[in-house]
Design a protein around this nucleic acid. Sequence first.
DNA 1: TGCAAATTTCATTATTTTTTGAAATGAATG
DNA 2: CATTCATTTCAAAAAATAATGAAATTTGCA
Lengths: 168, 168
Amino acid sequence: MPPLNTDSFVKDSPDRLLELESIDFFVRLMGILGLPRSVGEIYGLLYFSEISLTMDVIASRLEISIGSASQGLRTLKSLKAIRSTYVPGDRRDHYSAETEFKRLFSSFIKDEIMPHLESAKDRIHRMEKILQQNKNNKDFHQIRLEKLKKLTKTGSRLLPALTGLLKF
Amino acid sequence: MPPLNTDSFVKDSPDRLLELESIDFFVRLMGILGLPRSVGEIYGLLYFSEISLTMDVIASRLEISIGSASQGLRTLKSLKAIRSTYVPGDRRDHYSAETEFKRLFSSFIKDEIMPHLESAKDRIHRMEKILQQNKNNKDFHQIRLEKLKKLTKTGSRLLPALTGLLKF
DNA sequence: TGCAAATTTCATTATTTTTTGAAATGAATG
DNA sequence: CATTCATTTCAAAAAATAATGAAATTTGCA
């Protein structure tokens, strides 16, 4: 006998169509953020699911491996894009989507972008040193370096502030 | 006899070190934007070059193929991140970096992000239709869809406005 | 504690993306 | 207008990234 889904689920039902659109939506959104398809699939599924879902249900509903599911859930947890909720009498973790996108974006900026800006600062320090030690110091280089500095500074201020503008 | 570079270029000279840092800087920046390494390399090279460079010089200086160079230059042109300048007596194109990052970012948002937001709008229309036609219309779905709508709307307003905040 | 279910890890495989380079095309010069 | 130099195109190769699945680990329960 084939395994049964815990909840009845009709192929091509309106609910299923909405779910598919949701998955597709977030696959593309996560794609823009450079995150793998599986991450978008999982989030899209959870976002339109009224009940929280376990990893095995997620994997089988999306037809992805449990390895992918595990990795994707980890990524989403680290972005604070999902939450695991306790369900009495079931020892599996139950996941649901954190629907405050604000949190997702701010984690993304903090985890994925800011580290780059930090290392950019180091690089600029190195470049300034090279330029100072160089006898035939070119104005051209000074000006370019100054622009890079301004770019990273603006980025470091603007990006974290950005999430404050989001109200959802 | 090996081919000579048109300009003398000392390995490990301060200028070369700065150039390498610039290339590395932009490889990473373009990486964040999802653009290939070669695009970052080319822009980084041009950004710290006092003179404009031809495609063949770019390819040989970066040790990339002319195919890559051609593709990368095309991408950078479409982002308005570089400019080609006329040099009398030379039939090759000469490229230099557009140093107004503002322009690069606004082209990027226009070309790479906004189309996604457009298609997201279509998707949301589809989802609204499904929801309307569905008899046992769930509040839960309404609420989720409303949030998606707000997200795309905020994105469509915020992202183009963003470039206005950049002053470099 | 010992067992079984749930989850994670990670080497391997599959997929996607990028680069290469040679052929085709385009453009300027004599 | 033919030739040569410059650039683009694109099929194939290489590299990077993501997914798989089985073994290892962890976890909760009896």
